[in-house]
């Protein structure tokens, strides 16, 4: 009974039947595959859940551990800050949760960064008159650790990494907070102003000695005097440098050196 060879009308029906069977089988396979993946994903999630729960205290308290955890998450392609903004892609499974992390850690890790973000905004605003809205990461960190430790619980220790993440988490607000690198220092900019090349060059040069003079700019950068003068005046108008008139030639100091440059201990 070899049906395949059967000529005639019935062979048409058979081939349709066959296609149907193949399709059905394919669908079944695909479903099973998806189910397996789903199970794997949920197993993974619950493991991650357990891990995060057992270590949530560490995640909150220990900056190094938090950084490692964050690194692991990003290696797994999970952005645990952004996850609250992309809830659709994340929770394709249909659960009605916000971010995984709000689910897992009761929002504490997310909240940690948002709280830190608020502190950063506060500190930047408080020091804006002094430094023109440009504060070095290290400076900001010591300010936050020293000044406001009461707010997030007594033992608030933050790492530079935390601050960077927190600043990034401020991005969806459309505010102008961003991190910029001048020389080998990271600065947090809280004013919407863009610096032009000359200005960043001067700020970079200031990192070396803590100050700059017009003639230093002329000699080292081969700038014309008016050009050097104009840049410095601009920076001064934005409160990005302070002038010291008692040194013969006017010296222009970066306020970032108020806390770090004197060398003297607190």
């Amino acid at each position: 009974m070899d049906r395949r060879r059967t000529p005639g009308l019935s062979s048409l029906t058979t081939s349709r039947l066959q296609t149907h069977h193949y399709t059905a089988h394919g669908t079944a396979l695909r479903t099973r595959n998806a189910e397996t993946l789903q199970t794997q994903l949920s197993v993974f999630q619950s493991l991650l859940h357990n891990f995060a729960l057992t270590h949530s205290k560490d995640i909150r308290a220990n900056p190094e551990f938090r950084a490692e955890f964050a690194r692991m998450c990003s290696a797994l392609n999970i952005d645990f800050l952004a996850s609250s903004y992309h809830r659709d892609s994340r929770d394709a499974g249909g659960k009605d949760a916000g971010s995984i992390w709000t689910q897992l850690l009761g929002g504490s890790v997310n909240d940690f960064y948002f709280n830190l973000g608020v502190l950063i905004v506060e500190e930047c605003r408080a020091t804006r008159a002094e430094n023109g809205g440009l504060i070095s990461l290290a400076d900001l960190r010591t300010r936050i650790q020293k000044g406001r430790s009461g707010i997030l619980g007594a033992s608030l220790s933050v790492s530079d990494d935390d601050i960077k993440r927190a600043v990034h988490s401020l991005a969806p607000l459309g505010s102008c907070f961003s991190i910029m690198n001048i020389g080998h220092r990271s600065l947090i900019r809280s004013v919407p102003k863009e610096l032009n090349t000359d200005q960043s060059t001067v700020l970079e040069a200031i990192q070396l000695l803590g100050y700059i003079t017009v003639s230093m700019l002329q000699v080292n950068l081969a700038w014309e005097r008016p050009r050097a003068h104009a840049v410095v005046e601009d920076l001064m108008a934005d409160s990005l440098v302070w002038v010291d008139c008692q040194a013969g030639e006017n010296e222009y100091w970066s306020p970032a050196f108020i806390s770090g440059g004197g060398g003297g201990g607190v």
């Binding site: 108008a237 302070w242 010291d244």
Partner: peptide, 24 residues
């Protein structure tokens, strides 16, 4: 113990920029 700003040379020159000046 003097505050850190005391060892910042421009602290002893009143700043021309009004915003910086008020902070100073």
């Amino acid at each position: 113990i003097f505050s850190p700003i005391y060892s910042f040379p421009p602290f002893f020159t009143l700043q021309p920029n009004p915003i910086t000046r008020s902070s100073q």
